[in-house]
């Protein structure tokens, strides 16, 4: 990665912007998925008019800096029987919230874990953890385990099950 100092060098800056352009092309070409082909990175390179070696380097770079979370198969939760999902929400003292989030995020079956602002008096909860299971009771059991883990750090808690998907479009860049 270029440092801010090296980016001020015109040559470095040009190559940084070239890379940003290439990365954008790669993202656009693959945000819907990679081709299931013997040489998928060759196909991507062809599409973005680059070289497979460079394309592979860019994927590694984006994995390293976090722009790509991971590369792999994404199973359909619902089709695989994970039909219950509960958004568990917790009111944790701000001083303990960071540590609590790390503990909860490390648990199996928690797919997302965030700190968010409260909206008092309507909404006292600051820690959100999405929990998945095959059925309602499994999700409730899992949330009881989280409650035990957090112990007396929990001032209040609730769980919101989704009852209907109203809209689901992927987050896309254009």
């Amino acid at each position: 990665m270029s440092t801010s100092n090296s980016v001020s060098d015109p040559v470095e800056r040009d190559s940084a912007s070239e890379l940003a352009k290439l990365d954008r092309k790669i993202i656009l070409a693959t945000q819907a998925g990679l081709p299931v082909h013997e040489r998928p990175f060759d196909l991507v390179a062809n599409e973005v008019e680059s070289d497979p070696l460079i394309v592979k380097q860019r994927f590694n770079a984006m994995l390293e800096d976090g722009r790509i979370r991971r590369i792999g198969l994404v199973p359909n939760h619902y089709r695989l029987g994970y039909v219950a999902n509960g958004m568990s929400v917790w009111d944790i003292d701000d001083a303990d919230a960071e540590a609590a989030g790390k503990e909860v995020g490390a648990l199996d079956m928690v797919s997302h874990c965030y700190l968010r602002p409260r909206a008092l008096p309507d909404w006292p909860y600051n820690l959100f953890a999405m929990v998945h299971g095959h059925y309602h009771e499994e999700v409730l059991d899992k949330i009881e385990q989280i409650a035990q883990l957090l112990g007396d750090k929990v001032r209040a808690r609730d769980i919101l099950f989704s009852t209907r998907i109203l809209k689901k479009t992927g987050l896309r860049i254009s």
Binding site: T30, A32, L34, M62, R67, R69, R70, L73, V74
Partner: peptide, 9 residues
């Protein structure tokens, strides 16, 4: 059974 295959941005 699979939603997609590829990078998760």
């Amino acid at each position: 059974l699979l939603t997609r295959f590829g990078p998760l941005y």
